[in-house]
């Protein structure tokens, strides 16, 4: 951990992280990360608890048959699966395109800056 950095495993021991934290590319990375994950987390939690409340308190509505024996409750439940899979794919594509390039840029910059290749075991 932070307290026991072994020198060969940590090429960034001498980096001034407060300076990095202020860099525009880092503040941009942080902004992009938070502006995606916070609203998305809020959205899926609200959608999930809306579903839970409907299943808990709106039995009549959830029991309306849509197609054969398939009712609103089952459709909404299956939509929870669909939304979970969709958010997962959306996040992965966002992270690949918008987060990873900046993150790896900063990482390469810092890890090569003071001690080239140290700690790279592969």
């Amino acid at each position: 951990m932070g307290q026991q950095p072994s020198p060969e495993a940590d090429p960034t021991a001498t980096v001034d992280f407060q300076e990095v934290q202020q860099r525009p590319e880092f503040t941009e990375l942080k902004r992009r990360h938070r502006s995606f994950v916070f609203p998305m987390a809020a959205a899926f939690l609200i959608w999930y608890f809306l579903y839970v409340l409907l299943a808990d308190y709106a039995h009549g509505f959830m029991s309306i048959k849509v197609l054969g024996n398939i009712n609103v409750g089952l459709v909404l439940g299956l939509l929870q699966f669909v939304s979970t899979f969709a958010i997962t794919m959306w996040y992965v594509s966002y992270a690949n395109k918008k987060l990873d390039p900046i993150a790896s840029g900063i990482r390469q910059d810092l890890e090569s800056a003071d001690r080239p290749q140290a700690g790279e075991t592969h």
Binding site: D10, K30, H33, T121
Partner: peptide
């Protein structure tokens, strides 16, 4: 904060 978002100095394989 920097490490968590960028992976700088993260434990390697």
């Amino acid at each position: 904060e920097v490490r968590s978002l960028t992976g700088v100095g993260a434990e390697k394989a």
